[in-house]
Design a protein around this nucleic acid. Structure first.
Lengths: 159, 159
DNA sequence: GAAAATTTAATTGTATGCAATTTAATTGTT
DNA sequence: AACAATTAAATTGCATACAATTAAATTTTC
């Protein structure tokens, strides 16, 4: 094996580390979200709605970096479950506005313990500020990376 | 909004930061892998095979943290493309061994430039050791996190 | 050595992701 | 106003992910 092969080793790849960590963490959410009857992407949508009460599909898509191809069927499932309502905006019939039902709002109370539970499941202690700081630093590094990637790829589009 | 709501803000979630960064980076791979005719998970499988030449489905699954439900159809597609061969082990008929075809081996040459190209696409400079070190540090942090999650969840299974 | 337990892939079913296209509504332009 | 361009969702098609089940082969155990 030549030295130029090193760059092609799986474990050298930042992307695989990310992909792997992301899936591992999402899998860890499974048992916590199952009692809420939510999948992980559904939980993300609910997080946004719990915060801002109401959003268009477009706004959800921008916040979560998901397109209508993913969101439309996901939102229909949340509607079926009775957690949200989907309604065309009378002012602009292109827009679909999502609002929480009472049941959707109530689910927030059950979700409150999820983040701390999850930290426990990653081997951290939610009351230990060192654990929390580690997590915050990693999160910030990831957010910076994401911003850089998005900036670069929007640049590449213009070529 | 009460202070206990802070933990439910999307941008506070390590998991969303991971999920988002992972998808952004995989999307950035798209244009680089398209000429190779590979999807990102297919590229990961090929990385392993380029390294170790031959592997069972089980070994691939362990290395990539993917199960047969994902790998079996993916490997059939790689076989269709003529990049790999799938063959039952005569010693143990349960086992399916994957080997590279000549075409699969040759594809490695075209893949060599992918990692450096990708660093450019994330706004880094593949010749700048500071960039590389940043990436390596982040990668190690993610690998540690993944190991912690897997350790904890294997512990939880035993309850 | 036969039955039980285990192991390895494949299969089934559900839910994403995402590119590409389509549809419908709105906006901009002449 | 008429028509082109744009915008927002939905739809289509393909490829994952992954839990759960099945099927077949092998090991273990009694």
């Amino acid at each position: 094996m030549t030295s130029s092969d090193d760059a092609l080793i799986l474990e050298q790849q930042l992307c695989f580390a990310l992909y792997n960590a992301s899936r591992a963490l999402i899998r860890a959410y499974g048992p916590l979200l199952e009692p809420l009857g939510l999948t992980y992407p559904q939980y993300l949508v609910m997080l946004v709605l719990w915060e801002i009460k109401s959003a268009t599909v477009k706004a959800l898509g921008e916040r979560l970096a998901l397109d209508s191809g993913t969101l439309t069927p996901l939102l229909k499932r949340l509607e079926q479950r009775g957690l949200i309502q989907r309604k065309r905006d009378p002012e602009d019939e292109r827009v679909v506005r999502i609002t929480l039902t009472a049941e959707g709002q109530n689910l927030k109370e059950q979700a409150r313990s999820v983040p701390a539970d999850l930290i426990c499941r990653t081997g951290g202690d939610p009351h230990d500020s060192a654990s929390l700081e580690q997590v915050a630093l990693l999160r910030q590094a990831l957010q910076l990376l994401t911003a850089q990637i998005q900036q670069q790829s929007s640049k590449a589009e213009k070529i």
